[in-house]
Amino acid sequence: MSSKLAASALASRPMPVAGHGRSRRLPEVLQYVVLPLAVLLLWQVASEIGFVRRNILPPPSEVVLVWYDLITGSTDAAARYSGTWLGHAWASTWRVFVGFAWGASLGIIAGLLIGLSRVVERMLDPTLQVLRNIPVTAWVPLSLVFFGIGNAPAIFLIGLGAFFPAAINATHGVRQINITLYKAARMMGANERELLRRVILPGALPSILTGVRLSMGIAWVLVVVAEILAVRRGLGYLLNDAYLFYRNDIVIAAMLSIGLLGFASDRLVVLLRSALLTWNEKETFGGEH
């Protein structure tokens, strides 16, 4: 029966085309690490042979040592920054999550309302479309004037950046719901609340979560911008401060820290997504994301 065929095809998740003959090529683990290893190796060699000056681009081995001291404070390789990593990392992560939380949740609510009501759309959408096209970095001067120096402008900027992708994708999520589902639910007697809770929200959820993921990404971009300008703690501040003291090894360690924390946050959102959406993946080529 065709249904059995479909089921077995689903059980063995389709692999991207390039992975087809993986038994004859690189083992899977190697496929993941080959690029980072190559980059690190090239970087180390370039530094060792003097292709680039060590104080401009310190080799990965030095970055690792400095990073280690930055976190533990045990070797003093990071000098005045020794052992400060956790404080900076926590400050940045906290700002990202607070800013993201208000920005994304307001964005989702606004986006849903725009998608659900033509009146709200006419009232909100033009304004949002204009505001959306102002780069969030252009808000920096005003946000400093309004909120002064400290956490407030950082959280404002991050929230503002997180708001738009969340809003746009929530609107899209509502709009792309199959009208037949809506009609079917109404035909069965669903009231407004049931329509919202049982048809519109679950139907829009995949798109909402896509927006949430984009918001999280933007939040990590903006936390660096905000910390360079407005605060004295956080990975962005560390990065900028170390730059001013010609400590490029610490700059690189801070950059990689931001990258890793951003990556971890993204995984968190993806995890949330796969916990909430067990149905959506079955129809995609990749089977995840």
Binding site: N178, T180, L181, K183, A184, R186, M187, M188, G189, V199, P202, G203, L205, L277, W279, N280, E283
Partner: peptide, 18 residues
Amino acid sequence: GPGPDRGVVFQQTALFPW
């Protein structure tokens, strides 16, 4: 308006994918 006394079966199957 529509109501549960008149069940509609659509050409495009109205099943909730989730």
